[in-house]
């Protein structure tokens, strides 16, 4: 379906590029934008330009930030002896929401994936090793996703850090809290038994 307005058509096409947005949703969003007062639309445009212009990557942990170093890296309250390694900035948000972790982060920006041509150089692993080798770090917690690629990347990073004599740990995998054992799927239970801890 083509619209009589070329600018509307262009907007719809731009919106369909977003993840999870199909053509129908894009049409609905575009028509919504069209109906908004001009100030509202300008606010949206400015917000989009701001994230692009103001947000950069922290030169220490590679999380997204508006100040460099980021508020976490520069906070005097954080425990600077612990680094938690995650894949993406979203993972930092997830852990920060818990309010339980008080150390620093390192966002490596993905996982090793030879089939997609992602090797160690495409990730911020060298930068992590540099941080670790500069001293002052007591523990590195690896919190990558439990995919085959995530596991492999965890092993790769652990192998690089161990020579420095620093404690390397990995977050546990097993039953989600609130799930009764009888309702958990079998693979999860098996993983949980494999990763059991001594009491």
């Amino acid at each position: 379906m083509l619209y009589t307005s070329e600018s509307l058509e262009t907007l719809i096409e731009e919106l369909t590029k977003f993840p999870g947005i199909g053509r129908k949703t894009a049409q609905r969003l575009a028509l919504y934008i069209l109906k908004q007062p001009k100030e509202e639309v300008e606010k949206l445009v400015q917000a989009i330009i701001n994230v692009k212009e103001k947000i950069k990557y922290c030169s220490i942990c590679y999380n997204i930030t508006e100040t460099d170093p980021c508020p976490i890296c520069s906070s005097p309250k954080r425990d600077k002896t612990t680094i938690c390694v995650v894949e993406e900035p979203m993972d930092v948000l997830a852990i920060e929401k818990t309010n339980e972790y008080n150390g620093l982060y390192h966002v490596i920006g993905g996982v090793l994936n030879p089939l997609e041509g992602i090797g160690p150089d495409a990730l911020k692993i060298k930068e992590l090793i540099h941080r670790v080798s500069s001293g002052g770090i007591k523990e590195v917690i690896i919190a990558l996703n439990p995919s085959v690629e995530g596991e492999t990347t965890s092993i790769y990073i652990a192998n690089l850090i161990k020579p420095f004599g620093i404690k390397v740990t990995r977050i546990a995998r097993g039953l989600p809290i609130g799930t009764a054992l009888e309702y958990a799927d079998i693979a999860t239970i098996v993983r949980a038994i494999e990763n059991r801890t001594t009491m």
């Binding site: 090793l112 030879p114 090797g119 160690p120 085959v148 596991e151 492999t152 990347t153 092993i155 790769y156 192998n159």
Partner: peptide
Amino acid sequence: DLLNVWDEE
């Protein structure tokens, strides 16, 4: 180096 890690998995 990379092969070694994939070997483990």
